[in-house]
Design a protein around this nucleic acid. Structure first.
Lengths: 202, 202
DNA sequence: AACAAACCTGTCCGCTTGGTCAAGAAACTC
DNA sequence: GAGTTTCTTGACCAAGCGGACAGGTTTGTT
């Protein structure tokens, strides 16, 4: 059952919801087609189950790292690194989510408008708090989040492009570390985060 | 003919290559299905034609703005603003490209590995030149480009998410201007671009 | 051992899909 | 205005699709 979901994640990531066929999904799971229908009923329900597994995983990083107690130099860097690690370890999850958004989020509109929106509002307040305390520039916090997501997830969603441009068959650890530090630098310096040593000065 | 391509761009952007049906495409163009087949032969050839139209448009911004003669404060800001404008005015083009990459770029691998790669190499040299002249930090130029693309294109590709989080039906000009300036700030400050007034100091 | 409940799967089915085709309508050519 | 090419289209088709289902197998219970 969990095995089916893992196999389906790969297939859905590569072909999308419409592109994936039940025959492919069944073959990937090593089961006859009718078996998937026994467990999940329809292709859409299988897809939704995969999607929901991803969503529950999705916001944990943020609520761990972006908290008022941390200094933004610590919180933002940690968050970016965590998201980059996710892009490296579970690229298929990111790709399914991306495909869903790309086609208008027909299956997760509610989640976006309610749960994600509420979480983002909370996170924005944390960032605004950091700005108010003079720990970083008064950057627009919501757009900062959009851009952090864009940068970190691009390494999962569009890694074909990255591999093609770099001329590498796969992105090795050194290259990925470079990518991570580039993103960290863009975020920290870009949002004017003061160094950890400095104290409030506002 | 051009009219068919414009209509197809919308449909492909919303449903993807697999998700779009010839019937949908024909309806969008206001023509019978057989007519599209008369002009383009197959669905794939129609898709490729749309895609190629996008690709030719895609790299012009870079080669206009990212040139050695400019100061990076001018070049990078101009490039980001141009890409953001593209995301605003032709989101469908960006979405088709994103979907193509997401599914492993089966139709444009060659373009990525050859033409795009060569262009990126050239652009990287320009950025390295700026760094060497002390006009900005010695940031990894290729990853800087990846991240600029990620940030600017996220406003086209994932605008459902952005609209849902912001709680807006559509992104208005003011909001988009905020987004643009946030990205410009992240890029310029993030890569340590010296202010235009300052002169070389290395 | 008997029975029931849960699980598995080969085979079938209606429907949609991309694509074909023949025949007609328009537009050129001389 | 006859002939020829280009364009347009309704009707059709084989293939592949998601899904249904009946009958078999395994597992659990008493």
């Amino acid at each position: 059952m969990q095995h089916i979901l893992a196999a389906s994640e790969k297939v859905f990531a590569q072909h999308g919801f419409q592109g994936a066929t039940m025959t492919q999904l069944a073959a990937a799971a090593g089961l006859p087609k009718a078996n998937l229908h026994y467990y999940f009923g329809t292709k859409e329900r299988l897809y939704r189950t995969v999607l929901e597994g991803i969503l529950t995983l999705w916001l944990d990083d943020a609520t761990t790292w972006l908290v008022p107690e941390r200094h933004p130099a610590d919180g933002l860097a940690g968050y970016v690194r965590a998201k980059m690690a996710h892009s490296r370890l579970r690229p298929d999850a990111s790709r399914i989510f991306a495909g869903e958004l790309l086609h208008g989020a027909p299956h997760i509109m509610l989640y976006l408008g309610i749960e994600l929106r509420r979480t983002v509002t909370d996170l924005a307040r944390v960032i605004e708090g950091w700005s108010a305390r003079g720990l970083m520039d008064p950057i627009n916090p919501v757009h900062l989040l959009f851009n952090i997501w864009a940068m970190t997830q691009t390494y999962a969603d569009f890694d074909v492009q990255i591999r093609a441009v770099l001329g590498k068959v796969s992105i090795d650890d050194v290259e990925f570390a470079t990518a991570t530090e580039t993103v960290v630098a863009l975020v920290l310096k870009g949002s004017g985060v003061r160094a950890l040593e400095e104290r409030k000065s506002a």
